[in-house]
């Protein structure tokens, strides 16, 4: 069993422009997706959760949201929406998937679909500062209280970005919990089953709190 406490980190993000012109039609979107930086793609798929934006889990990435809301192309929105950045081998592999879908849709269209003025796609990325929040989790039973107090930025860093960073190993919480005994294993199994694609950060936090609470209550009941 691990004796190292979990160091809760936090992060702060500021959005910056990618430096590419905005896209006002599908062809421009395809061209710029091929040219934009990996950080830009990562931002539109993953970091978007940290931006000041309306939480709308209907769309799992900015390209799908734009296809539906600005272009009015629900077929394209569905195809883009199902892409999973966490299971992609790399950002370049993800770029290949997006490009293929856009190419396919262009081939199906008899004209180039365009958007109304003011509804272009803007390519952005972010600068992020990562720092120690000062919070520590010493044993699995403390995770509930920690999750309740944690900022959404910490949830993002450990659960969302952690999952992208660790791939098969899962998020940071699960990785730590698994090395902390039977209770840790049970908590890890529960929280790692959450599909981050369908939650805003606030609802993700609530989900993690509820799952941890259920496991801890169940264990407390069992030990009585």
């Amino acid at each position: 069993m691990s004796t190292d406490p979990f160091h809760v980190r936090s992060c702060a993000l500021i959005v910056r422009m990618e430096g590419l012109p905005s896209a006002i039609n599908l062809r421009e979107l395809r061209d710029r997706v091929e040219r934009c930086s990996p950080s830009c793609l990562y931002h539109h798929f993953v970091e978007r959760l940290l931006r000041p934006t309306f939480d709308d889990p209907e769309f799992t990435n900015d390209f799908a949201a734009w296809a539906c809301r600005a272009l009015g192309d629900t077929v394209l929105a569905e195809r883009l929406g199902v892409l999973d950045p966490f299971s992609a081998d790399s950002i370049e592999a993800l770029r290949g998937q997006v490009s293929e879908i856009l190419e396919e849709r262009l081939a199906e269209a008899d004209h180039i679909p365009s958007v109304d003025p003011g509804k272009a796609f803007y390519f952005t990325r972010a600068s992020m500062a990562v720092f120690d929040s000062g919070m520590r989790i010493n044993e699995p039973s403390e995770i509930l209280g920690a999750l309740q107090r944690m900022t959404r930025a910490s949830i993002y860093f450990h659960f969302v970005e952690g999952r992208f960073r660790r791939k098969e190993e899962g998020d940071d919480f699960s990785a730590w919990l698994r090395s902390n005994g039977e209770l840790g294993e049970k908590l890890a199994a529960s929280v790692s089953a959450v599909d981050v694609a369908f939650f805003s950060l606030r609802s993700l936090k609530n989900e993690l709190v509820q799952r941890s609470q259920r496991i801890l209550e169940h264990e407390a009941e069992r030990s009585r």
Partner: peptide, 29 residues
């Protein structure tokens, strides 16, 4: 969640840190 001044202050601080350390994707403090 998004438009209170605490978020605004946080972004100003992040901007200044970013500019001071060269504009990169990530600054580990």
């Amino acid at each position: 969640d998004n438009f209170l001044l605490t978020r605004h202050v946080r972004e100003y601080l992040t901007l200044m840190l970013s500019l001071e350390r060269g504009v990169t994707d990530r600054v580990d403090l």
